[in-house]
Design a protein around this nucleic acid. Structure first.
Lengths: 229, 229
DNA sequence: TATAAGGTTTAGATTAGTCTAATCACGGGC
DNA sequence: GCCCGTGATTAGACTAATCTAAACCTTATA
């Protein structure tokens, strides 16, 4: 069996492959998981020995198909749990991430199945992240465009926000920005600061935050500032 | 923080204190947790150092108040999970134990609270085991008497069955024996083999199984072979 | 093209949890 | 009251995951 820690490394590599360039370097993994580089080096050696990643020394790593399947299963667990906690245990979408992180390694196939069934096999979790299907095909993680790529006057619908940072999530929730919400970019200032109109309110978002929000162009029929599923 | 493993040791000592004589010896813990005696010795040293147990060398161990509180919290998690899985995720009462064992160490206070609320703060889990309250006062684990102590003609109501052995549980479920069921002892054979009438069926139970079933004397008003909550 | 900077790996140590083999303690029976 | 068996502990080793400090590649640039 695979340890929790190994699963965490595979999940991290999965995210990092999709977020930046491949191959994924030691220090990016180290930063993401909050461990030191030598720790990552020794861990990726084991993962390569066990066939979950391809590794080229001094270059970086890439998931093999087998490693990707493991990562996708953990991601499926995570996102199903986020959806379940929100839908059936009255959690707020901004606070489910940590709970899901703790539980994702410890649920059985049976549990996964029953939770998926209770939810009616949803396609996305409360943050708008796609939930991989039971066949563990990697989902398309790149829906829409980054809010940071838009300019003044664009009306967009929020598709997806990052679930990783609790502080950021609390801020977004407070600002009324969530998946399904339609907003309009009113200004882009130096350093990428983006100002958006959400309903009657204006909010300014630092570039890092705007980059982590994925949006699609809003059609005229959609209501401003009204959330959807 | 306390590791999963340490929590498992405290939970094991909690059960063993209530099941047999105190203090609890090394080999009983070793057998219960399926590890070797030297492993237990070294682990109980750490637990004693950290104040969770009193230890007397060559004699055995006993939980301190602090250790007992930790054990009771884990037990609360376990039993709430068993109840939740049965009630809300359509699990069968005979198959929830392992899932609860895996999850009990990883749920937050918040999760515990929300699950308890969703269930309406139940007093017992699906096996009839008492669920400790949020204040973590140790519950009375000794309800009723053991089925093995009864003789021919006794009509009793099943209060509680052990949740530890999946095979035994499957057998009992198949035999129609569950908490709430009323049955009548029709025979006690050598080696403690107990024969009981459950509805129209007769079932013979080995002594070890009969000892793990706790019952109370059935009053006339109760229906035979009809389960209750 | 030589070198310095930045990232990566090696070396060596630490902690937690486990094991086997060997030694030790305690209590019952002669 | 001694001896022996059962159970407990000590001794020593191993694996997984982590760290710090030091040595090592790679690459960009001067």
């Amino acid at each position: 069996m695979l340890s929790d820690v190994m699963e965490d490394y595979l999940k991290a590599i999965y995210y990092l492959e999709r977020e930046g360039d491949a191959p994924v370097g030691t220090s990016r993994i180290a930063e993401y998981l909050e461990v030191t580089s030598p720790t990552v080096t020794s861990m990726v050696e084991s993962l390569a020995d066990r066939g979950f990643i391809e590794r080229e020394k001094y270059k970086g790593v890439e998931l093999t198909d087998e490693g990707e399947t493991v990562a996708v299963e953990v991601v499926r667990h995570h996102r199903l749990l986020e959806a379940y906690l929100t839908e059936h245990l009255d959690y707020d979408w901004s606070e489910v991430h940590e709970e899901a992180d703790a539980l994702e390694h410890h649920i059985s196939e049976e549990f996964e199945r029953r939770v998926a069934e209770a939810l009616g096999d949803p396609e996305v979790d409360p943050h708008g992240d796609p939930i991989p299907g039971a066949d563990l095909t990697p989902p398309d993680e790149g829906v829409g465009t980054r809010l940071s790529e838009h300019g003044s006057g664009d009306r967009v619908r929020v598709e997806r926000v990052s679930d990783r940072d609790a502080e950021e999530l609390a801020y977004l929730q407070d600002a009324g920005i969530a998946p399904g919400i339609v907003l309009e970019v009113t200004d882009v200032a130096p350093f990428g600061m983006v100002t958006v109109a959400v309903g009657d309110e204006e909010q300014s978002l630092p570039e890092t935050v705007a980059r982590s929000i994925r949006v699609t162009t809003a059609t005229g029929s959609e209501d401003r500032a009204v959330g959807g599923a």
